[in-house]
Design a protein around this nucleic acid. Structure first.
Length: 287
DNA sequence: ATGGTTGCGCTGCAA
C-alpha cells in the first residue's frame, strides 16, 4: 500500500505534472492540498481521468484558496469533510481537512493554516486548529495516517538554517508541541534519522537549486501502522523541471496489514525500518 | 540576466 501526500499549489496548474507523476509512482492513496478549486471544478477537471486510472476521489474546496482531496484505489469509505470542532477564521470554516478510510487506515489530507506572523490572529488560529485536530483524531480510529502540509518543521534539522527562522512561524515551540502532541510517528524522520530531507523550497532566489528548504509536509502514523513501514521518502524529482509545485510529494509504502485484508499476508519483518521489504522504488537518499 | 517566484485574478495578497 503506497500512500502519498502532495501540496500541489493549484491542481489546475499542476495537471501536467500530476498525471505523469501518478503514472510513474503508482500511489494507491493520494492526499492533495491547495487544490484551489471548488468540488464541482475539481470533478470537471479530473473526475473522468481519475476514474479511468482506477481512483475514487473525494474533494473539499471552495475555490481560489485551500482545497484538499483524497484519491484512492483501495477503497474510499466514510468520507468526512472538516473535523469535529474545527475552528473558523474570519467567520468561516476553511477547506483544509478531509478524511476517509482507505485500506483499513483512517487517512487525513490536511492543509494546516500557515500562521503568517507569530502572535497574529492567524497564528492563534493555527494553534487552535491543531489542538482541535488532535482531539478529533484521538476520538477516531486507532489506525490513522495524518498526511499533508502541516506548516510546521518538527525540529531544527527540518529547516536549512534554524537561525534564519528565529522569530518566524513553523519552528516555534508552540507549533512543535502541537505536532508532538498527536503522539504519532513521523515516518520519514524515523526512516531517515540523520539525513537532510526537505519537502518545501521557496520559489524565490534559487532556493531549490541550493537545497535551502524545510520539511513541513509530513506523514504522521499511529505506531501499529508505522510498524508496517517499508519505505518513506520525499520525491524530489517532482520539484524539478518546468512548472513544479513549491512542495515535493512525500511517499510512504506499507507492507500488507497483519490481518491480510490487503493482498497476501506477509509477516512483519523483525526490523521493518531497515529491512527494505516491499520497496517498489529504489530507496534513494532524499537528496 | 542589474533578477527575491508563483498563483489567483485583476489589485494586491497569500504563501
Amino acid at each position: 500500500m503506497r500512500i502519498a501526500t502532495w501540496n500541489v499549489n493549484s491542481v489546475k496548474t499542476r495537471v501536467p505534472r500530476l498525471l505523469p507523476w501518478l503514472e510513474d509512482r503508482q500511489p494507491d492513496v493520494v492526499c492533495l492540498q491547495e487544490t484551489k478549486l471548488s468540488d464541482e471544478a475539481f470533478a470537471a477537471l479530473l473526475g473522468d481521468t481519475l476514474n479511468n486510472l482506477g481512483y475514487a476521489f473525494a474533494h473539499h474546496g471552495h475555490g481560489q484558496w485551500n482545497g484538499v482531496a483524497i484519491l484512492s484505489r483501495l477503497g474510499l469509505d466514510d468520507v468526512e469533510r472538516d473535523f469535529t470542532g474545527q475552528p473558523q477564521f474570519a467567520g468561516k470554516v476553511e477547506a483544509r481537512a478531509i478524511s476517509a478510510t482507505c485500506g483499513a487506515v483512517r487517512v487525513h489530507s490536511l492543509y494546516v493554516p500557515n500562521g503568517r506572523e507569530v502572535g497574529s490572529d492567524h497564528f492563534d488560529y493555527k494553534l487552535a486548529w491543531l489542538d482541535a485536530l488532535a482531539a478529533a483524531v484521538a476520538a477516531g480510529p486507532t489506525d490513522v495516517a495524518l498526511c499533508g502540509d502541516m506548516n510546521v518543521a518538527p525540529a531544527d534539522a527540518d529547516v536549512f538554517d534554524p537561525a534564519a527562522y528565529l522569530g518566524h512561524t513553523h519552528v516555534t515551540p508552540e507549533e512543535r508541541a502541537r505536532i508532538a502532541a498527536f503522539g504519532l510517528v513521523d515516518v520519514v524522520r524515523e526512516r531517515w534519522p540523520q539525513e537532510r530531507v526537505f519537502s518545501y523550497w521557496d520559489y524565490r532566489a534559487g532556493m531549490f537549486h541550493k537545497d535551502l528548504g524545510m520539511r513541513i509536509d509530513l506523514v504522521l502514523m499511529s505506531r501499529g501502522v508505522a510498524d508496517r513501514l517499508a519505505a518513506a521518502w520525499v520525491d524530489r524529482q517532482a520539484r524539478k523541471g518546468s512548472g513544479p509545485s513549491d512542495h515535493a510529494p512525500v511517499i510512504v509504502d506499507l507492507d500488507s496489514a497483519p490481518d491480510g485484508d490487503i493482498g497476501p499476508v506477509v509477516p512483519p519483518p523483525s526490523n521493518p525500518i531497515r529491512s527494505g521489504r516491499g520497496v517498489r522504488l529504489p530507496q534513494s537518499p532524499p537528496l
